[in-house]
Simulated assay, not measured.
Amino acid sequence: MSDVTPLARVADGTWYNALGEAFEALRQEARRACHQHATLAPDERGAMAPWLRALFAEVGKRVFIEAPFHCSYGRNIHLADRVYMNAGCTILDSAPVRIGTGTMLGPGVQIYCAEHHPDPTCRREGIERAFPVTLGEDVWICGGVTLLPGVTVGDGAVVGAGAVVTRDVAPGQRVAGVPARPL
């Protein structure tokens, strides 16, 4: 989307307050789109529901998102051609999330961009910052994986089921575990 939103102003990793009305309006729009996606019959939903397509920043050809799916805003999600997300994926897209061509996400994959403030008083006030997450081309993220703020997973990499990715994964590398380590 081309309009300037509060999200565009916080994409540089600085601390901001996520509890403002503008952020809530964007979250509500995403909730509606995700709800519509989840409540339609599969043959009515199609490969990419029009309300999700309109919400996302970019959607390539032959993208398929199983239901249920959840995102914080949608506006920071960039999907290249032939991206597949299995059931139960969540993308908390406070910063840009880019998913490359031919990449597959298993069931229950979680992508987190926001980092809440370490000070409890600031957390209570909704202070957070966000870092982008990038998945290259032909990446395979197995079921139950969690990707933390700021990570990049290189082209052709594989992340084993249940892993928690705290650092970048090199192209072609296979990682697994908590935290994820090379196999």
Rank of each mutant, 00 (worst) to 15 (best):
W51A: 14
G100S: 05
C71V: 06
R31M: 13
E66Q: 15
P68Q: 14
D3M: 15
P182A: 14
M48L: 15
G108P: 08
A11P: 01
V63H: 05
G177H: 13
C71H: 03
A22C: 07
P182G: 12
N17M: 09
E24D: 15
L7A: 07
D3Y: 13
T39N: 11
I141A: 05
V83D: 02
L183R: 15
R53E: 10
G102Y: 02
Q28M: 05
P171G: 10
F64G: 03
H78Y: 13
C122F: 12
G154V: 03
G154H: 04
L26A: 14
G102D: 04
T14I: 02
M1Q: 13
V59E: 02
G154T: 04
A49C: 07
M85W: 02
G143Q: 14
D12K: 14
T134G: 00
T14F: 03
C113W: 03
V145Y: 04
E21K: 13
P118F: 00
C142R: 02
I141V: 15
C122P: 01
M1D: 13
D81A: 09
Q173M: 14
R53Y: 02
G106S: 06
S2R: 11
A8I: 03
R167I: 00
P118S: 01
P179E: 10
V153D: 06
G74H: 01
E58I: 00
N76F: 03
H116C: 05
I99S: 01
A161D: 08
C142V: 00
L79G: 07
F131E: 05
V4E: 13
P149T: 08
I91E: 09
W15C: 01
L148V: 04
M104R: 14
A47C: 07
V169K: 09
G162S: 03
P118V: 02
P118W: 01
V83N: 01
G46V: 06
D119Q: 02
D12R: 15
A8K: 14
D12V: 08
Y16V: 10
A22D: 15
T166F: 07
G60K: 14
F131H: 10
N86E: 11
L79W: 06
T166G: 06
A30C: 11
R129M: 00
P96S: 05
R167Y: 03
I99G: 00
R181I: 07
T14G: 12
R53S: 07
A176I: 03
G126A: 15
F69Q: 09
M1P: 12
R32W: 11
M104A: 15
A114P: 10
L26T: 10
R31S: 11
D168F: 12
V153F: 05
Q36C: 00
Y112L: 13
E21R: 14
V133S: 01
D93G: 04
R123H: 04
